[in-house]
Amino acid sequence: MKAVSARGLTKVFRGRRGQVRAVDGVSFTVEQGEIFGLLGPNGAGKTTTLRMLATLISPTEGTAEVMGYDILSAPQKVRARIGFLTTETGLYERLTPWETLLFFGRIFGYGPGEVEARAEATLRVLGLEGLKHRRVGTLSAGERQKLSLGRCLIHDPPVLILDEPTASLDVFVARTVTELIRRLRAEGHTILLSTHDLHLAERLCDRLGIIHRGRLVAVGSPEELGEEVGGVDFEEVFFRTLRRAGLSPMGANPVPGRAGEA
């Protein structure tokens, strides 16, 4: 069973100024125990794709399964099997880390003794034991991000969906977070993340989906993607992949590639 299987996911937003096709027929699969990254610039459709998988919004067309459960017909079962980290930390400022973890643990059905043991263990893994009774509002951005990850992990979900997990973090905290993500993979979690950071994607992800203007233009490991377009570094691979798909990173489509480029 695939951890995530998306088939033709499409999302059209209709507003007063007309409609926007934010995600356009995206299909991909994520194997259990791998780190899969959706890589693309801002506005590419990464967050919308993740929100559909987290059942926060419904696809206009297509569907997806998470751990075998359909996001449209069994959203509650999907939610029980994911931990979703939004771009905001999504934490309650007036609660402490301890209360935050207990609250989310209880929501997922853990009993009193069990939830406390899990909260203790999670705080230890995150290195937040010393801050467990401080109000979240007084924590630093890095501490909050770690706690947000802890909040996603408290019910030990098989799939973690992380939207830009290192965005706006300093280099030290970002490194801690990426190490934690690797550790979670080693413990058997499947991680689906979005990022616009090319180097993070290359270093961290087992496989990547490059997304631009709502379309998934390539899927593969960083090495496979490099072999396909023949770039010297991953940045070059990214841009060559977009050009090969007839998508300009900046201007109007299609933009012809430079002479000699794939």
Binding site: T86, E88, G90
Partner: peptide, 14 residues
């Protein structure tokens, strides 16, 4: 506004 509602909505709570 604070982004916490998305967290709740993606939790197991109905």
């Amino acid at each position: 506004e604070r982004g916490t509602l998305a967290t709740l909505l993606s939790s197991r709570l109905s």
